[in-house]
Amino acid sequence: MLPSLLDGSRRAPAAPRASRLFWIFLTLGLLGLSTDVLAHAVAQGDKGYIQEISGVNLIAFIYLGAKHMVTGYDHLLFLLGVIFFLYRMQHIAIYVSLFALGHSTTMLLGVYFNVGINSYIIDAIIGLSVVYKALDNLGAYQRWFGFQPNTKAATLVFGFFHGFGLSTKIIEYDISPDGLIPNLLAFNVGVEIGQLIALAMILIVMSFWRKTDGFFRHAYTANVAMMSAGFLLIGYQLTGYFFA
């Protein structure tokens, strides 16, 4: 985390025009992402498949879990925010494990006990998690309120909400009770596999980016773009809640 990112007087000189344009297009791209992609939506084809099958289908549910994580941009944005300023693998492992623990717990228990939350509300909270982490990376809480929230606890708590987001969708699709527990466990394994794949890709990109002279200069813009995407998701979901 870099509290000085909010201090314009300490920021590095302006980036070249090409770099500024790159970050402008990145922000517009994040804002233009389909809200169905940013939310915990399950593809229509996958929805039909889940509704039709019964019995134990481990491989299929592992695939569906991995696909959900790799294509779930709300997950990926939050993970990007979590590891943005983490350099040591043991620190990354701790935070990612906390997120996985929270996500897995509420996803499994939510489906098993049929505990659903209004999908608009839960997805708005997931958007809030992206905003929270972007502000945390910008050092906003220390600057505005004079204290730093417990980042590990926040990662675990928001992991719970991310898991509820998925369990709510699965409940809506009336998954067969025949083979429910093995299939849910397989789905969760797939989610963790997908998370590792996504994390590996993010870390590869971040490792190259951090070696450039422009990393700290562009970190402010990157986190503002993440925060904007989070606000977009919040606004869309709350609009759906009040007007759908």
Rank of each mutant, 00 (worst) to 15 (best):
S129C: 11
G159I: 07
E192S: 08
L199V: 05
G116A: 15
D213A: 15
F215A: 03
I204N: 07
I193E: 01
V191Y: 05
V205A: 06
L138C: 11
H103S: 07
V111N: 03
G110Y: 02
L128N: 02
T151D: 13
G165N: 12
L156M: 14
G159S: 07
L135F: 13
G110I: 12
W209T: 09
Y120D: 11
D174Y: 10
P149N: 14
R210W: 01
Q195L: 07
P182L: 13
G127A: 06
Y220F: 04
I202C: 10
F161C: 05
K211E: 04
A154W: 02
P149R: 07
F215W: 13
Y141A: 02
G190P: 03
I181E: 01
L166S: 06
A200D: 01
A200S: 15
T106C: 12
A186K: 09
F113G: 04
T105M: 12
S176P: 04
F145S: 08
Q148M: 08
D123M: 10
N183T: 09
Y173R: 12
G159L: 09
I193N: 01
V205W: 05
G214F: 02
I197M: 06
P177D: 12
P177R: 14
M107Q: 02
K133T: 14
S119F: 08
S176W: 11
L180Q: 08
P182V: 08
R143D: 00
F187C: 09
I181Q: 13
A153F: 06
V157K: 10
L108T: 09
F145C: 06
T212G: 11
E172G: 09
G139D: 01
I171Q: 05
G146T: 07
G214E: 07
I171C: 05
I122F: 13
D213S: 12
L199D: 04
N150D: 11
G102D: 09
A134L: 03
I117H: 02
F158S: 10
I193W: 07
V189A: 14
G139S: 01
A198T: 08
I197L: 10
P149I: 13
I122P: 03
W209V: 13
D178K: 14
G110K: 09
T105S: 15
F216D: 05
G110F: 01
